[in-house]
């Protein structure tokens, strides 16, 4: 019987003292991103632009190039870098708060410019690092530390779905994956691979949202948090590939 040995990608050294909470989705996301990079032979020709907060934990796990700039600004910082060094693989890595709140203008305008970078967004439906406040993707009814009675449209506005937001955007690639199960993790890894491949072929903006659990701030065990994803989060945020433009 063939055995498969689990191996951490060379570019990751472990999260050390700045590690994620138990059951967090960031670790899996980081692993599959760097597995793809290693498989593509780009380990030493890439750079990650992290947001602050939980998104920047990955910086401490990295052996090679990483940068953590201002909250919400990972996408423009990646843009400036890519314009200077177009031959490198450049991606941003940020949460739903950064991407759809403070950095929403970049999420829209970078797609309008069809910038040749990849944005990876970890959507765990709340602001994790600051203690679980409501984010733009928190579901209606979701209790957070800033919507203690549950999010309502009247008080808090509706959540945003990037797939619908990008309906009219002429970009290279848009997909949404999740890290709740092995099949979804494998699919998500494939989305990341496609996104990176499109960037390296110069095809334009690629965007992969990854739904992830946040058991600590959801007030759940890791197992319960996966159930919530499957029972509630996936119902609002559909999984799959939504834009896949053929090469120009």
């Amino acid at each position: 019987m063939a055995t498969k040995t689990f191996k951490i990608p060379e570019a990751l050294e472990g999260l050390g003292s700045h590690g994620c909470c138990q059951g967090c989705g960031h670790g899996i996301a980081a692993r599959i991103i760097y597995e793809v990079i290693e498989e593509m032979g780009l380990t030493k020709n890439c750079i990650a632009f992290h947001d602050l907060a939980c998104g920047s934990n990955m910086l401490y796990a990295q052996k090679y190039h990483g940068f953590s700039g201002a909250h919400g600004r990972a996408i423009p910082t990646a843009t400036g870098f890519k314009r200077t060094r177009p031959d490198m693989l450049v991606f941003s890595y940020a949460g739903d708060g950064a991407t759809y709140s403070i950095g929403m203008q970049h999420t829209v305008h970078t797609a309008m410019r069809d910038e040749n970078i990849t944005a990876i967004v970890i959507n765990n439906t709340n602001f994790g690092m600051t203690g679980g406040q409501m984010s733009p993707t928190s579901l209606i009814g979701q209790k957070t530390t800033s919507s203690p009675a549950g999010r309502t449209k009247e008080l808090n506005g509706n959540p945003v779905d990037v797939v619908k937001l990008y309906t009219d955007m002429d970009i290279a690639y848009l997909a949404r994956g999740a890290v709740d199960s092995v099949p979804n993790i494998n699919k998500t890894k494939n989305y990341i691979r496609k996104a990176f491949a499109k960037q390296m072929a110069g095809e334009g903006f690629s965007f992969v949202e990854i739904l992830a659990p946040c058991p600590t701030n959801w007030g759940m065990t890791p197992a319960q948090s996966l159930e919530r994803m499957q029972n509630e989060v996936f119902k609002k945020y559909e999984l799959g590939e939504f834009i896949e433009r053929s090469a120009k």
Partner: peptide
């Protein structure tokens, strides 16, 4: 490269990226 940005603060974060890549910005 010249980018007309969505606002002024975006401009500076793009500069940051380009400068970290070694460019004069």
């Amino acid at each position: 490269d010249m980018i007309q940005t969505e606002d002024e603060l975006t401009g500076l974060h793009m500069l940051l990226g380009a400068s970290l890549g070694g460019a004069r910005v």
